[in-house]
Design a binder for these strands. Structure first.
Lengths: 153, 153
DNA sequence: CGGTATTGTTCAGTGCACCGACAAACCCGA
DNA sequence: TCGGGTTTGTCGGTGCACTGAACAATACCG
């Protein structure tokens, strides 16, 4: 029976793209702070005092995963976690000075890395790249909400 | 200090794309067999008797990861692992009948899923999508080989 | 032939990512 | 006010993914 050509499988390509990114991140940005961790710092720069769930929503991580990422950032002293006096279920998050400093440092490195990463594409191709990536992800995300339950045994 | 717009960060988009794919895979293809596992089955359909390292190379997984994936497939009885009599370092891998059957089944489901996944893009856009994805990944992969050691502390 | 280098696999450690189950806190209607 | 339903966070379990180190079998070379 015929094997399939994986280069026409978006899932396979997505995985490869992430690997490639991971590689560049490690060498050009940081070996300590990961890309999802940076995303969390970034959200908290824009919206200090957000709760854990909302942060997860902003960066696209579920509650379990965001809890781990945040705990790692807390252990490194990059953010603080305080119970919301208004609502005892939540923790309110904000960056420490250390965290803000780290975010600034990584921001410039990340910009450099993105340039290298996207160098193989022309200006217009980069725009197309972003747009297509986004459209596919958004559409799938939409299906999640609709969730007609196409379960598969 | 200004926060950054993550929608122009390819790493972030790559992660979101993979999440979207994972979601669709789970509901439309299989909850048991994952996409990387399918990739391994697929390689072994094309080239039975390959060793572990080569399989990893074909699907783009490092030695540690491929070892785990293969051990899971072995546990499920989808492939066999025999020491190479010619070279006692390797294990030769081939699908069991069960494994071949599984591959056939998932092949058709995967095709269906890819259609849904890519539905938001036109025919031409899909082609562009594949090409850009591939070019970026390949270029980064190339840097790995060159590896000028841009280490970052 | 024997010592050294290379190659294939495994192991330990870290981190991302999902799901389902659970407890505490909150909210709202009877 | 109290009792059911929702929301926030934690926990346990599984799986992918990388690095670096250890280990064994083989290959190469003087």
């Amino acid at each position: 029976m015929a094997a399939v050509d994986l280069t026409t499988h978006p899932g396979h390509l997505a995985r490869r793209l992430q690997q490639a990114h991971h590689l560049l991140w490690n060498t050009m940005v940081s070996e300590e702070i990961t890309s999802p961790q940076f995303a969390v710092l970034n959200v908290l720069v824009a919206e200090p005092g957000l709760d854990q769930r909302s942060v997860g929503e902003r960066v696209g991580l579920d509650r379990s995963t965001i809890a781990e990422v945040i705990s790692r950032l807390g252990r490194r002293g990059l953010l603080d976690k305080v119970r919301d006096p208004q609502d005892g279920r939540r923790f309110l998050l904000r960056l420490t000075d250390e965290g803000a400093r780290m975010h600034r440092k990584l921001t410039v490195r990340t910009a450099r890395m993105n340039q290298v990463f996207l160098a193989p594409l022309s200006e217009e191709e980069q725009a197309v790249f972003f747009e297509l990536l986004q459209r596919v992800s958004d559409a799938a995300e939409g299906l999640r909400r609709a969730a007609p339950l196409g379960a598969v045994r």
